[in-house]
Design a protein around this nucleic acid. Structure first.
Length: 286
DNA sequence: TATTGTTTACTCTACG
DNA sequence: CGTAGAGTAAACAATA
């Protein structure tokens, strides 16, 4: 990661891509996450080139934030008022620029995304997301979203138990948005827990939905069994700082089925030539 | 209303 | 030469 000092460059265009510049700004921050305005500020402070034509490059930068999976959006907590979210680096995208070029990465960092659930309760299976760099209109993008983390960590439990992600989240003590609840209950109306969760307002703090269903990872064609889910009171949310490192005893959910550790990130094993830190990416398929 | 965020489309260019 | 990453423009939605 390049670490230029303040105003390291004159008015000439720095040899960094927007992704690199943004990553620099985020890495430079104490919290390793910044709101958009602070990313702008960082870049303009250090690179005079970007003190002009702000509308142009800032639009490009925003495009990069949304488009590239290496950036994740972290919602503000209630005690952090302001507009927009914080932006952070995906933990697995660290060595994008290892080849020494900050203009062009070796390969675009992509996160696997499942398809949304099919009508009739047929569950989707995980598939690579973002074909040819395209971004589907509905899809989950945020690996730090609580639904995603739980879906990843408890994929095995979800698979074995047949419980919807929302139910697993509920058992773990996480609130579930009415949006997610509605999505699930529309597919599996027999899952009663959704009714009680519909009134919980909190979930948007952890990211957009459309995603969460990704965690409902069953083999293709398998249908969701009718499993009644007991309703339990929902404890307070954990601090945001605890989210990436979330670990909960899976026996709380289904003692007989330990979570099969799986990741939403398809990881390409490094080749000898790539060394220790190959970029995680998924093959593009059409 | 300005800012933030998403998405699409297109061009250019580096890379294999 | 084909592919994919990067840059740009633009339309549009959501939100503080």
């Amino acid at each position: 990661m390049p670490r230029p000092g303040k105003s390291s460059y004159s008015d000439q265009k720095p040899p960094y891509s927007y992704i690199s510049l943004t990553a620099m700004a985020i890495q430079h921050s104490a919290e390793k996450m910044l709101p958009l305005s602070d990313i702008y500020k960082f870049i303009m402070e250090r690179f005079p080139y970007y003190r002009e034509h702000t509308q142009r490059w800032q639009n490009s930068l925003r495009h990069n934030l949304s488009f590239n999976d290496c950036f994740i959006k972290i919602p503000r907590r209630p005690d952090q008022p302001g507009k927009g979210s914080f932006w952070a680096l995906h933990p697995d995208c660290g060595d994008m620029f290892e080849n020494g070029s900050f203009l062009r990465r070796r390969k675009r960092f992509k996160v696997l995304r499942p398809e949304p659930p099919l009508p009739g309760g047929v569950l989707p299976h995980f598939q690579p997301y973002g074909l040819n760099g395209s971004s589907p209109s509905s899809g989950f993008k945020h690996p730090f979203a609580i639904e995603n983390i739980i879906g990843r960590d408890y994929k095995g439990v979800i698979q074995a138990s047949g419980l919807p992600l929302a139910s697993v989240m509920h058992h773990l003590g996480y609130p579930v948005s009415s949006q997610l609840s509605n999505m699930v209950s529309s597919v599996w109306p027999h899952v009663g827990v959704m009714d009680s969760m519909a009134s919980m307002p909190v979930s948007h703090e952890y990211g957009p939905f459309g995603v969460p269903m990704k965690a409902l990872c069953h083999p293709p064609g398998q249908t969701m069994p009718a499993v009644p889910v007991p309703i339990k009171p929902t404890p307070a949310l954990p601090p945001v700082s605890a989210i990436p490192a979330l670990t909960v005893n899976s026996s709380q959910i289904c003692p007989s089925t330990l979570p099969a550790s799986s990741s939403l990130l398809e990881q390409t094993p490094p080749t000898p030539s790539e060394g220790k830190s190959a970029l995680h990416s998924v093959p593009v398929h059409s």
